[in-house]
């Protein structure tokens, strides 16, 4: 089963390397990884999707993340209420006018999709949503000539109804 972890880490050079090295060394399979600044200064936030065959392995993953000195806090979103989003940009060859109108139509079916760039012979579509929505959207585009595609990792956050973890509260306090 895919688990989604959120990790707060020191924003220092080499930290991403430490995290990815851990996953490689322990043979944990990363599905996706997204990193960006957290709301706290000097701290980055990662969302990591990783395959964990059992709950015990999921605990191992969290415990091993905690062992990294630069990892400040870890939440496992998997069995909790959360919001998760992924994004994709897809550039499609639309030199054929027929294709162009079909693509525009597909974009309009998905309410999370948008045309973000239009050139004479290509369109760039953007989609933001649950990963499976992104997946479905891309599958719809597969029959066409895709010139480029970029997908991001999933980013996730616990819903407001979920209690804030102690560790995160402690982090806030330290600031």
């Amino acid at each position: 089963m895919i688990h989604t972890f959120v990790a707060y880490v020191e924003n220092k050079p080499g930290v991403l390397n430490r995290v990815s090295s851990l996953f490689r060394r322990r043979a944990y399979n990363i599905e996706s990884l997204a990193v960006g600044p957290a709301h706290l200064p000097g701290i980055s936030r990662m969302t990591i999707e990783v395959e964990a065959a059992t709950e015990d392995i999921a605990h191992q993953i969290a415990a091993n993340l905690y062992k990294l000195v630069d990892v400040l806090h870890v939440d496992d979103l998997t069995n909790r209420k959360s919001v998760k989003r992924a994004l994709a940009l897809v550039k499609i060859d639309t030199s054929n006018p027929q294709v162009r109108s079909e693509i525009i139509q597909i974009a309009s079916i998905f309410k999370q999709a948008e045309i973000v760039d239009a050139a004479p012979s290509s369109l760039i579509l953007e989609i933001v949503g649950y990963e499976d929505t992104v997946e479905r959207f891309i599958r719809m585009l597969e029959p066409y000539r895709i010139l480029e595609m970029q997908r991001t990792g999933v980013v996730g956050m616990l819903r407001g109804s979920e209690p804030v973890s102690e560790g995160l509260a402690a982090l806030e306090e330290q600031q």
Partner: peptide, 11 residues
């Protein structure tokens, strides 16, 4: 002392 050792090899 190391939480990652618990249930690692033996449940």
């Amino acid at each position: 002392i190391d939480p990652s050792e618990i249930n690692k090899n033996v449940k």
